[in-house]
């Protein structure tokens, strides 16, 4: 555990002040304003044939114990956080900067680990936004097709 802690300190020292501030002075503004909606659509290919299409993250079916213990639900919310962070950055920065950003890589890594056990050689990721202010359908933000292997990560 000590070794893990030292490794964590080395890799995340840049973001430490912000993370500490967030812990000490958290924002209690939960759900106070509506915002844009984002969605991610994944397609997995094996030998150029699509083998699976799905929305990511997938919704969770309810069981009574999830009132106090809901790992899948918490993971869903965390995935949506990564997705919205990536989507917001993609709208603010040029694509070459955005694609190299740590946040986008974290988003992709989480997707890859999520689909990890399935067998595929290529994955396409479609990230879309539905503006809250506009009465329009989902618009494309990012579309990537990545050749990959199982358990390969981008960081």
């Amino acid at each position: 555990m000590v070794i893990m802690a030292i490794k964590g300190l080395i890799f995340n020292k840049r973001t430490l002040p912000l993370d500490l501030l967030r812990l000490f002075f958290t924002s209690w503004s939960f759900f106070d304003r509506p915002g844009d909606s984002f969605r991610t659509r994944l397609t997995l290919y094996q030998d150029a044939t699509p083998i699976l299409e799905q929305n990511w993250p997938e919704t969770v079916s309810f069981k009574w114990w999830q009132l106090i213990f809901n790992p899948a639900g918490n993971d869903w919310h965390y995935s949506k956080q990564l997705e919205s962070c990536a989507a917001i950055l993609s709208q603010k920065y040029p694509s070459e900067d955005f694609l190299q950003s740590r946040e986008f890589k974290q988003y992709l890594n989480h997707i890859l680990k999520y689909v990890g056990p399935k067998s595929f050689d290529t994955i396409s990721v479609l990230l879309e936004v539905k503006k809250y202010s506009a009465n329009a359908d989902f618009q494309r933000l990012v579309f990537l097709t990545l050749p990959t292997t199982n358990k390969k990560t981008f960081i």
């Binding site: 964590g8 995340n12 973001t15 430490l16 958290t26 939960f30 993971d75 965390y78």
Partner: peptide, 13 residues
Amino acid sequence: ASSCFFTRRFNGG
């Protein structure tokens, strides 16, 4: 340690 170095935003508020 967890919220600054490891899972960071996973557990939120």
